[in-house]
């Protein structure tokens, strides 16, 4: 890997995103609107305080998964990926460039969404608020890494979008938001142990409930990051310089 090429690639991806004002708007505004809607639905109850933080972690994962899988699929189908792989750009540079670009975007998204959740909609968490942003950004990078990997199995953008319910919804159902994970049937609980989103939501729940959250949150964040690294490593196996 070559840091210069990684950064050049991240810069190019960010330029492309910046050129698409509507996508930037959706990326930033939609999570805020959803969080606001949630606060409104549950106004006057404790529910928003309980699930607000976990959802701040789930949104960036889902959104970045979608955006990345469609963008990289476009890169495959337009022939630019084939061209890139005939240049000195390494597969690792390509993947890390994407992760860096979407990670940077996720920082902005998480700052805005968390800011609105805490100061406008009155989300109350016991742990330090800045950790909300850290967890959200790591979740977004996980979404990007998973999207990079999954896009290898889609032939069209339509298929790529279909992978969202296939990959993301089961994780959403099992991550502990609907039913606490220790209340799930044993087999499902074990299954949820190997799904990254479970740890993302665990981290947010800990932040919600405990003042001394940093240690446990740190462990969960490390696990989520490890999943992201594994997805990127698997993704690099799907990038072939030679094709039929």
């Amino acid at each position: 890997m070559n840091p210069r090429l990684t950064i050049a690639t991240a810069g190019r991806v960010l330029q492309q995103i910046r050129a698409d004002h509507r996508t930037v708007g959706l990326l930033i505004v939609v999570p805020v609107v959803l969080i606001g809607l949630l606060a409104w639905i549950f106004s006057g109850t404790r529910v928003f305080d309980n699930i607000g933080a976990p959802l701040l972690g789930v949104f960036p994962f889902v959104v970045m998964f979608l955006v990345t899988s469609v963008t990289t699929l476009r890169e495959r189908s337009s022939g630019t990926l084939e061209r890139l792989l005939s240049t000195p750009l390494g597969k690792g540079d390509f993947l890390a460039g994407y992760a860096l670009a979407f990670g940077a975007l996720a920082v902005v998204q998480a700052l805005v969404a968390t800011g609105f959740a805490v100061w406008v909609f009155g989300l109350d968490v016991a742990g330090p608020r800045w950790l909300l942003v850290v967890v959200a950004v790591v979740d977004a990078v996980l979404g990007t890494a998973t999207g990079l990997f999954v896009s290898a199995f889609a032939r069209t953008e339509f298929q790529a979008v279909q992978f969202m319910p296939a990959f993301v919804l089961p994780q959403f159902l099992l991550c502990g938001l609907l039913v606490p994970r220790d209340g799930l049937p044993r087999a499902l609980e074990l299954f949820s142990d190997v799904l990254p989103l479970s740890y993302a939501v665990d981290a947010m729940r800990t932040l919600t409930a405990r003042v001394d959250a940093a240690g446990d949150v740190g462990r969960d964040v490390a696990i989520v990051a490890a999943f992201a690294v594994a997805a990127i490593a698997l993704g690099s196996l799907t990038l072939r310089r030679r094709t039929a």
Partner: peptide, 26 residues
């Protein structure tokens, strides 16, 4: 290598495309 169908980034400007490929080639 120039592929048969143009393989550059349609959403970027001419200059941005060439700047990126120049960076890759050093």
């Amino acid at each position: 290598y120039v592929t048969q169908s143009p393989s550059v980034y349609g959403d970027l400007t001419v200059r941005a495309n060439l700047t990126y490929f120049a960076a890759l080639a050093g």
